[in-house]
Design a protein around this nucleic acid. Structure first.
Lengths: 288, 288
DNA sequence: AAATAAATGGAAAATATGTTCTATCGCGTG
DNA sequence: CACGCGATAGAACATATTTTCCATTTATTT
């Protein structure tokens, strides 16, 4: 059982009192949380520099939390490190014991870390197999489109929602085809020449999305399909098709690679459109 | 391709010259090999004590291998540590350099593959730093909740949408707080004891989400926050807080790690609820 | 708006740390 | 057995780092 190190306790105390802290000390707190693992190596001055404050502020911080000074607080982190550094060998054993156990008895974290592994593998594959030509075409298509329609249903809806959100930071008119009120048809009606449809769909393919693609073709809009294979029903109706193979664990299919591809697509588009960073993300009261 | 760190080179040199070393210095050499990972944290005196020699012996050791003194040798080990301990930092820098370079001269794929790299690094970090206890708590909380409310606005909305979708595959009643028709309040009104709210928010925090968390607390519902730090405003109002550090690459935050975490959460929950795979993902006519 | 309290920046004092120097010790060799 | 070389310990020195203190600014309260 991982017994709470004093460092953990301290971090928690910091989190609790955080709001009551003055500006500079909040900065220090954030820095500590962010660089927790390096604190033991760093000197007061280095940390202070990292926070953009003066060394004395860091000392005051430590004192505020009951230590005689920075050094005493640092000792807590050093201790935590040396405590965890050595027994990390037993990690192999932990793995083995987990492999033997059934999933039902598997701790939640074990499931999580396997899933994360699977997602990483998916991302590796994405990096390997991304088709340069097609990606470039996809960017070009979006760059020249006047209106961009985005559609994905059920599992793919979250992705569509994200793309639509991201594209709002461009000058394009963006339409998220949500089907709200059963109005898929109506939302798609206005697509036309010069517009683009981004359709995201994986097997078993949602008929709504397939329908949208047919409509797009009829209306002479160009279609960017995001799916898992060249062979599915999306291939027939798309001008550019981007493939994503998701890793899966526990018979559960990931979505991280798709998300990643879509973000990459957006970034590439943003640069193609020569949006500056500021234009890309104007941060106002409502941003999240 | 882990290129030999200078620390590696040094250790090898020590091994070669070991036999020719005087007794005390051999002791130092052994100590260094044994405690290689702690050297950066230790002071000359501490190492000397560990070896049962005097501080000056350690200094002479360092000088014998070409360093001006102990400090210079220690720097080698510190470097090796920071190189492996925070690869995520170098990834941040890589991303920044991407921003600085003229994107116009960079092919779209180049941007994409760098972005994918960044996402991979983010996932690595997620795997490293996932808090076991909290993750387990989060799963437990959801497992015992009767109704689950999910809320995220703007950038986080896509994530909320996904979670809500996934949770539909359980027996829970799931409510995606969308704010459709400006009805955030109304959608949140029915939360109560025994219910759970999943709130996803990153700085600058959406006020709607913060509001939802306050309401949840007032109504005695438990709150699972998904955010980037213990120190933000979500900490106060949450029962469990899961941290995801996304690289804010290209001035907009990645979402792949968050997506991955949420999927992992769902998978773990599914196993906790002992759903079989078939039950988890019943594939019917409408699936996508 | 004034008074008061708190936070900040900087420099000086205190401390801790690393390095060098020298006297001594031990060991091997002539 | 004496001599010399290198290793060692500890003190003395030099440096770097932390801490304290105080003047100044900034925020808060009356």
């Amino acid at each position: 059982m991982a017994k709470r190190s004093e460092a953990d306790a301290l971090m928690q105390r910091i989190a609790e009192e955080f709001e009551a802290l003055p500006r500079q000390l909040q900065g220090v707190a954030r820095y500590l949380e962010e660089h927790r693992s390096s604190i033991m190596v760093l000197r007061v001055g280095e940390i202070a520099e990292g926070c953009g404050v003066h060394a004395s502020a860091v000392v005051r911080f430590a004192q505020r939390f009951g230590y005689s000074g920075f050094t005493e607080m640092q000792a807590v982190f050093r201790e935590a490190f040396t405590a965890q550094a050595s027994p990390s060998r037993s990690y192999q054993q932990r793995i083995r014991s987990v492999i033997k156990n059934r999933a039902s008895t598997m701790p939640a974290v074990e499931i999580a870390s396997r899933f994360i592994d699977a997602s990483r593998a998916g991302l590796d594959e994405l990096a390997d197999e991304l088709d340069e030509t097609r990606f470039q075409k996809a960017v070009d298509m979006l760059a020249t489109a006047e209106n961009i329609y985005v559609m994905g249903v059920r599992r793919s809806f979250a992705i569509a929602a994200y793309i639509a959100y991201a594209l709002q930071h461009t000058q394009k008119r963006v339409h998220l085809v949500s089907g709200l009120g059963g109005m898929f048809r109506e939302q798609l009606r206005s697509m036309g020449k010069g517009d683009a449809l981004i359709a995201i769909s994986f097997p078993p393919f949602g008929k709504e999305t397939l329908y949208a693609m047919r409509v797009a073709q009829q209306h002479k809009a160009s279609v960017l399909a995001i799916t898992e294979s060249d062979l599915g029903p999306l291939a027939r109706h798309s001008d550019v098709l981007l493939k994503v193979k998701e890793g899966s664990a526990f018979a559960f299919r990931g979505l991280t690679s798709t998300m990643c591809l879509c973000q990459a697509l957006f970034v590439a588009l943003a640069y193609r459109l020569e949006l500056t960073v500021e234009e890309t993300l104007p941060r106002g009261e409502y941003d999240d």
